[in-house]
C-alpha cells in the first residue's frame, strides 16, 4: 500500500524537524545569551550598515527562475516518458524529440537574445 510508505516519509519528516529543532532548543537552555545593542547590529565589516537591505533586485534573477520553471515542468513529462519508453514504439521517440526541439528553440532564442548572459 502506498500510504504505508508515506507514513514512514511523514515520520521521517517529523523526526528531521525534531532533530533540527532540538539543538535550537538546547542552546536556548545551555548557551549564554547577553544581547547588547551593538551585538545585535547587522554585520557590515566594521561599518554601520546603511539604508535598506530588502531592495529591488535585478530582473536577471527572475528570468533565470522562469527558465528553470519551464525546464522543471519539462521533467514532469520526461520521467513518465522515460519510464514507459520500453513499451512504446518509435512514435514515442519522435513525440519526445518534437517536444524537446520546441523547448530547445526557446533556449536558443534566449541564448541568441542575450538573456542567458549574466551581467
Amino acid at each position: 500500500m502506498i500510504l504505508s510508505r508515506y507514513l514512514f516519509i511523514g515520520m521521517l519528516l517529523l523526526f528531521a524537524i525534531g532533530f533540527a529543532v532540538a539543538p535550537l532548543v538546547l542552546i536556548r537552555i545551555i548557551a549564554p545569551r547577553r544581547p547588547t545593542p551593538h551585538k545585535g547590529q547587522t554585520v557590515e565589516c566594521g561599518l554601520e550598515t546603511q539604508g535598506e537591505t530588502w531592495i529591488r533586485f535585478r530582473l536577471q534573477y527572475y528570468i533565470f527562475a522562469l527558465l528553470f520553471v519551464v525546464f522543471d515542468v519539462e521533467t514532469v513529462f520526461l520521467y513518465p516518458w522515460a519510464a514507459s519508453y520500453v513499451s512504446l514504439g518509435w512514435y514515442a521517440f519522435v513525440e519526445m524529440m518534437v517536444f524537446l526541439a520546441m523547448l530547445t528553440v526557446g533556449l536558443v532564442y534566449a541564448w541568441a537574445i542575450g538573456a542567458l548572459k549574466w551581467q
Partner: peptide, 11 residues
C-alpha cells in the same frame, strides 16, 4: 558550538 552564545541579529 553548543556552548557558543546563541543570538539573532536585532533586525
Amino acid at each position: 558550538l553548543l556552548f557558543k552564545e546563541d543570538f539573532t541579529p536585532a533586525r
